[in-house]
Design a binder for these strands. Structure first.
Lengths: 307, 307
DNA sequence: TATTCCGATAGTGAC
DNA sequence: GTCACTATCGGAATGAG
C-alpha cells in the first residue's frame, strides 16, 4: 500500500521526529473495535508464553517455531533480501530506514513503525508495521497467532488508533453535531487536553477500524488503522472498497483466527473482493456500479461527519 | 452506417451532381465477386418472373407479396415515418433527399443511391441504397429474394464496384508492383481510358467486396461495396471487424439464400461477431487482442497494396 | 489482495 | 449488427547503476 510518495498537507499533525522511539507498553488494553465478531480465547499452539516482555526482549528473542511460521527464521533475512527493491517489499524501507521518510512516518517504537498510507483509502489511513524480522514476512494469520506478538501489536495499534481518532476529531470535529459543545468550548480558548473542563464530544475512536487484509499484496506485515468513511480519491475500484468493507478485512480483535475460520479460505476471500458493492453506512446495494457508489459515498460522508 | 457527416478529402473523384440520374441497365452482368460461396440458382418462391424490366417499371410495379415481405407494403411508408429522425432511419435521408448530401452521394439512379459510408471501415467503403419503398425497409434476406429486385441490385452494384475499383487504382496504383507498367505509362502522359494502349495493370475489382450484413442496424437496406483491406480508423472494435470478415458478411452473389442457410440464424451470426479475430490476409489469429490486430493490419496493408 | 497503464468488455443514450 | 461516451473488467509490468 504505502510507497515513498510526495508529501501531502492536512496530515496527522506535524511529523514527529521519525527515529524517536517512544516507550511502548507492550501489554496494554485492546483497542476499541466495533462491529464484527469478537475474538475467541487463544487456543492456538503458540511457542511463546503470554508472559510480559519488554520491547527489547521482544525484538531480540528467539522466533516462534513451525506452527505459525510459513518461512523459517533462517529464510527470513534471505527473503528480505529478495524482496528488497521490488514492489512487494516496498514497506521494508520504512522498517529499515524510517528516518528517510519524515513526512510519512508518524512514530517509531522499538517494536513498530507507524506511517501514513501513501494511498489512503479513507480520510485517515495509517499502517502499523512490526519491526521484528521473525514476524514481518509472515502471513498475518500466522504472525498474529503468536500471543506475545499479538499482544504487542494490539497495544501499539490501540495507541495508533487514539492518534488517528484525535486527527479525525481535528479534521471533522467542527462538522459534528455530537461534538459541537466541545468544539465551541475549544474555539472559546479552552485548551485541548484539559479533558476535565471540556465537554466529552464525539467518540472518534468508534470511527476508526483496525485490522489486516486476508491476502495482502505487500510482503511486510501491516495493520491498517483506517477511518470508516472510505472517502478517498485513491479508492478507485471494487477491490479497493471491498478489501476494507467485507470480511476480507480482519479486525485485529478477531485474532488469533480459529483453524477453521472461513476467512482463511482463499476462495471465500476472492469472492469477497468481487462481491457486489454495498454502502458501508446505509447498506444500499450498487451492484458493480462503482462510480455510482462513489457519488453516494460523498453524500454519506457529509451525513457521517455531521453526526 | 452512413450518417450526415463532415466531408473528407481524397474521395472517389469529385462528387457527381447528386440528383443527376443515370440510366441504369437493370439486368446487366453480375458484379465480380471473389471468395465465399457462389450463388445458387434461385429456387425461392418469388412473385415476379425473371423477365427483363426497366428501371421505371421496376419502381412503379406492384410489390412482391408475402413470401419475401416482412412488412406489408401498406406499412412501409408508416414505418418510414416512424424511423425518420432516429438513428436507425438515418439512411432514409439519402434516399429521400440525395441532393442534400453532395459531398457524400456519388450517384443517383432511378433505382438506387450510391454514397460514401460516413464511417468507412476500409480504404474504399460505399453504400448502395435501393430507392424502392417496397423493398428498402425489408430485411436484406427478404428483399433480395425477389429476383427482379436482386437483378437490379446486382447490376447497380457491379457498376458501383467498378467505380470503387477505379478509385482504389487511383489511390493505390502507384504502390503496386502488378500495376507498375500501367502506372508508368500513365505518368508518361498516356490517358486513362485509352485501354487499348495501356498495359492492363492490377485488377482492383478483385479487391472490392460486395454484400450485406446479416443483421443490419440501419433500417434501410444497404449493400456494402468495400475494399478488402479493413484499414481504417473507424474500425474500432471486434464487431466492426468481424462484421466484414466473417460469414456475417453475405456476398450479394450468394443471394437468394436457401431457406436453411446457416447465415440466417441469429445465434450463428452473434457468434460470428464475437469470434476471435483473424487476419483477413494471412489468417493469423489474434484472440481478443484487437489493438494487436490493428497494428498487424497496418503491415498487411503495406504488403497488400504493394502486390 | 501494492499501483499504473493499456486495452477489452459492457451498457447507455441518441431523437 | 449505427456511433460515441462512460465505465467496468482484465491482464502485465513494475526495479535498476
Amino acid at each position: 500500500m504505502a510507497e515513498p510518495a510526495e508529501d501531502t498537507e492536512d496530515i496527522i499533525g506535524p511529523s514527529s521526529a521519525p527515529a524517536t522511539a517512544e516507550s511502548p507498553s507492550s501489554t496494554s488494553t485492546s483497542p476499541s473495535h466495533h462491529g464484527a465478531t469478537q475474538s475467541q480465547p487463544p487456543p492456538v499452539s503458540a511457542t511463546k508464553p503470554p508472559a510480559k516482555r519488554n520491547a527489547f526482549t521482544e525484538l531480540m528473542s528467539p522466533k516462534p517455531k513451525a506452527p505459525i511460521s510459513q518461512a523459517p527464521q533462517s529464510m527470513a533475512s534471505k527473503a528480505s533480501q529478495v524482496i528488497r527493491g521490488v514492489w512487494r517489499g516496498a514497506l521494508g524501507e520504512y522498517i529499515e530506514h524510517p528516518e528517510r521518510f519524515p513526512s510519512q512516518v508518524l512514530r517509531v517504537t522499538p517494536n513498530t513503525v507507524l506511517l501514513k498510507d501513501a494511498f489512503p483509502k479513507a480520510t485517515i489511513h495509517l499502517l502499523l508495521l512490526p519491526r521484528s524480522p521473525a514476524h514481518y514476512l509472515l502471513h498475518p494469520h500466522a504472525a498474529l497467532a503468536d500471543p506475545a506478538f499479538l499482544a504487542m501489536m494490539r497495544a501499539e495499534a490501540a495507541s495508533a488508533a487514539k492518534l488517528a481518532a484525535a486527527e479525525l476529531a481535528r479534521q471533522l470535529g467542527s462538522f459534528s453535531a455530537t461534538n459541537r459543545a466541545r468544539d465551541e468550548a475549544l474555539s472559546k480558548g479552552a485548551k485541548d487536553g484539559e479533558e476535565e473542563r471540556l465537554p466529552p464530544g464525539r467518540d472518534y475512536e468508534k470511527e476508526i477500524r483496525v485490522g489486516t487484509h486476508a491476502h495482502p499484496s505487500m510482503a511486510h506485515l501491516h495493520v491498517h488503522i483506517i477511518s470508516r468513511d472510505m472517502r478517498s480519491e485513491r479508492v478507485k475500484h471494487k477491490k479497493h472498497y471491498n478489501s476494507f468493507t467485507t470480511q476480507f478485512f480482519v479486525p485485529l480483535a478477531d485474532y488469533p483466527l480459529a483453524a477453521d475460520d472461513v476467512r482463511r479460505e482463499t476462495g471465500f476471500q476472492n469472492g469477497n473482493l468481487k462481491r457486489d458493492l454495498v454502502c458501508w453506512r446505509c447498506g444500499k446495494g450498487f451492484g458493480g456500479r462503482f462510480a455510482e457508489l462513489k457519488r453516494h459515498l460523498e453524500e454519506e460522508f457529509e451525513a457521517w461527519r455531521a453526526e
